[in-house]
Simulated assay, not measured.
Amino acid sequence: MTTHYEAQLVPLNAEKIGSAAYGHASFDIDGDTLTIKIDMHGTPANTEHWEHFHGFPDGKQALIATAAQDANGDGFVDLPETEPVSGTTMVPFDDAPEKMDIPHDRYPVADANGDFSYEQKVPLSELSKNFKSSFNDEELQLDKRVIYIHGTDPELTIPDTVQGMVGHFDQHVTLPIATGQIEAID
């Protein structure tokens, strides 16, 4: 029996980045395989887009960020401003989500129209083991998580008040551009 989850992704920071990213994500668990599919449109073109699910390590329900999370009033909702409602970055949607290796450059790149599709089959037992190791024996609990799509044009002028540097990756890489609540589907 397959367990199915979905998320509708809506724009975040669209007024500031000049595009309104939107899309759809699905997660299907069948035995030891988690199949992740994400289709995005309206993202900054020819740009790599980090994508993850975020949540709280204690299993608290994560919610999507909105303009209301712009705590410093600079007009941008940056990565740290999402944390009070969405929690922390947990699982990357890259070439090997089960490894839970987040800061790197192996994420999807949008085409010239700002579209991209992502599909990955993930060994659920390995992902669960690494997730529990990273988050104090917490379960994946997809229906308590939210998705973020990140990344804007590296030439976009953003104020110094926008935070989110991760390693050598700057705020252009980590700025959230779309988000969605993951929900269980019967």
Rank of each mutant, 00 (worst) to 15 (best):
T88Y: 13
T89R: 11
M90Q: 11
V91W: 00
P92N: 09
P92S: 09
D94F: 02
D94I: 03
D95A: 08
D95M: 09
D95F: 06
A96M: 08
P97D: 08
P97F: 06
E98S: 03
E98A: 08
K99L: 15
M100E: 04
M100G: 01
D101K: 03
D101C: 06
I102E: 15
I102Q: 14
P103Q: 10
P103E: 10
P103T: 04
P103V: 07
H104V: 05
H104N: 14
H104T: 07
D105E: 15
R106D: 15
R106Y: 13
Y107N: 01
Y107R: 01
P108S: 10
P108E: 07
P108I: 01
V109R: 03
A110S: 15
A110E: 03
D111F: 09
A112P: 03
A112S: 14
N113R: 13
G114I: 08
D115F: 10
S117A: 14
S117E: 14
S117F: 10
S117T: 14
Y118M: 07
Y118S: 01
E119C: 11
E119W: 08
E119P: 09
Q120V: 12
Q120R: 14
K121I: 02
K121E: 07
V122P: 07
V122D: 00
V122E: 02
P123S: 04
L124V: 04
S125N: 11
S125Y: 07
E126D: 05
E126A: 11
L127F: 04
L127D: 00
S128H: 04
S128R: 12
K129P: 00
N130W: 10
N130R: 14
N130P: 05
F131I: 08
F131C: 02
F131N: 06
F131H: 13
F131T: 04
S133A: 15
S134A: 13
D137V: 03
D137T: 12
D137Y: 12
E139H: 08
E139M: 08
L140K: 02
L140S: 01
L140V: 01
L142D: 02
L142T: 02
L142Q: 02
D143L: 01
D143H: 05
K144V: 04
K144Q: 13
K144R: 15
R145Q: 12
R145G: 03
V146Q: 02
I147Y: 02
I149N: 10
G151S: 01
T152C: 12
T152Q: 11
D153L: 13
D153Q: 07
P154L: 06
E155V: 12
L156A: 03
L156Y: 03
T157S: 15
P159F: 01
T161H: 09
T161P: 06
Q163N: 08
Q163I: 05
